[in-house]
Amino acid sequence: MASIIIEAAGLTKSYGEICALKPLDLSVPEGEWLSVMGHSGSGKSTLLNLVGGLDRPTAGTLKVGGEDLLGRDEDGLARFRREFVGIIFQQHHLVPYLTALENVMLAQYFHSLPDEAEARTALERVGLGRRLKNRPGELSGGEQQRVCIARAIINSPRLLLGDEPTGNLDGSSTTMVLELLRELRSQERFTVVMVTHNQEVADWGDRTIHMDDGLLVREERKVF
């Protein structure tokens, strides 16, 4: 039986009067692909930010990879992110003045040492071996997202978080990105937590949780 990588109990997040995440219990086994579905404002991105150590919960407990995130200060959370987590955003968030290769090397810089050969290999794995020296402005949306995937996996994270990573892509690019993620997961054996509001994208996961108004309202497990 796989070990548990994410373990949350009574996890709550409030912004002043607004409760973005109501007490939530969640357990994610290592290697699972968990899809988080819900409308805007349902609390799915809040959950992702808490799990990724980008934000701090108001109440409850949260352990990721056995690490208690509540006990960490801001810089401690940053160190956790660089060691454990790879993140893919809907808006890509690539640094505009760096090439595809340099964007990947930037993640290496914050983790350990920039290694050009390793970054080149990561980009070749996502099919961008011939676009290494191109800047984000010279790449298509799908290519930019593949740079983001290479950047997210370069430090061999145990947890890959996707915040609507296919939200800005067309149908073929979406399929290409999801297939790439599936292939990489089978090789790297990382856990995926992906936020989406698209049922078809969510269906790529092993399990889907549905959120509404900050509450986990339904859970579906894929039947093989």
């Binding site: 990724g52 810089d75 160190r79 660089r82 060691e83 987590v85 930037l106 993640a107 914050f110």
Partner: peptide
């Protein structure tokens, strides 16, 4: 950069 693990 902070999200990628850069400390303050």
């Amino acid at each position: 950069m902070k999200a990628m693990g850069g400390t303050r």
